[in-house]
Design a protein around this nucleic acid. Sequence first.
DNA 1: GGTTGCTATGCAACGAGTTGCATAGCAGGA
DNA 2: TCCTGCTATGCAACTCGTTGCATAGCAACC
Lengths: 190, 190
Amino acid sequence: MSLEHAILVSLLERPASGYELARRFDRSIGRFWTATHQQIYRVLKRMEADAWITAEEVGQDGLPDKKVWSATPTGRAALVTWLRAPVQPEAVRHELAVKIRGAAFDDADGRAALVAEVERYRADHEATLAGYLTGERRDFPDPDALDAQGALQHVVLRGGIAYERMVLAWLDDVLATLRNLDPPNRKATP
Amino acid sequence: MSLEHAILVSLLERPASGYELARRFDRSIGRFWTATHQQIYRVLKRMEADAWITAEEVGQDGLPDKKVWSATPTGRAALVTWLRAPVQPEAVRHELAVKIRGAAFDDADGRAALVAEVERYRADHEATLAGYLTGERRDFPDPDALDAQGALQHVVLRGGIAYERMVLAWLDDVLATLRNLDPPNRKATP
DNA sequence: GGTTGCTATGCAACGAGTTGCATAGCAGGA
DNA sequence: TCCTGCTATGCAACTCGTTGCATAGCAACC
């Protein structure tokens, strides 16, 4: 598994507390790897036991202390070993696709509800895309003047943008297909 | 969770044994929901206990007997209930994206290995796309003359095709970015 | 005759991921 | 004053997913 490795990448990019990591996994890293704070704290403990990371206790004004974690040379070596191993095939779990095929076994009311749900889902993805584009303008104003780390972050973000655009186009296709199954009644000619 | 629901959709489309389901989850359904045969057999047992499905024992010439499962009205009702519930946000796990960002912490040799790995990965996706397109020509020769079930299967397949095309384009972007980090040495002018 | 490979089903153990809950200090608003 | 919400960390229980193994008959090949 590679939650460990995703955390190592994130800590090498910038040291962080478990809480900060959890927030990153809701945003930047979370675009391609999700994790909850419980998972993160558990894995951090294991990584510390393996000496992949070390903590520095930091007191804060008016806030609880936090442990700021950094990757050790051992951790970095473990990351490099993993980087050079073959990429595992992805486990796809696309619930919406199951529901779309399932819609053949519901009635027109159910399909109308699905249309509404797909519209909501589409709005979420539109907001995600807008967020990516804003982040791109903010973080990569001059794409030709990036170091290795920046260039790699940028190409991953471009992947997210391409994904969201593809999803939006497909959802339009889905909506047209669903609407076509139960066309609205036309007024009878008088 | 919805492995149960993916199985219900598959059984409503056509009854099948556990083994046949496992093969479907390596192919058509597997495009958007993966499952191993052990998972499937375990879930089938639970679904039978809940009366969502029933089995018919079928003897075969020269092959072991199999249990052919069908969805019951109870199972179909359970599917419809689930269909009308909100779509859960997807849990994204994109290992390659982690490795790409991690490549900033490896050396040129490591990045060269990653380029080779991305090329292999790209070839896999190219083969997947070719398989989808072949399947589309075979299963949907006349897209305008489909019933509801066929139209919905087709739009999901179009989603798979759009996804693979997007991935291929992005992988080309990734390869260009990686190669640009460690440009090959040019011959010194004599 | 032995090996490999396919159909067909299943158990057991383990590891990963989810959900609910708990603590605790401080800030801000009703 | 109480309630909500944010930072910050963690335990416990449960479910889901993965891996290894086992059985068993038949077919094809060397």
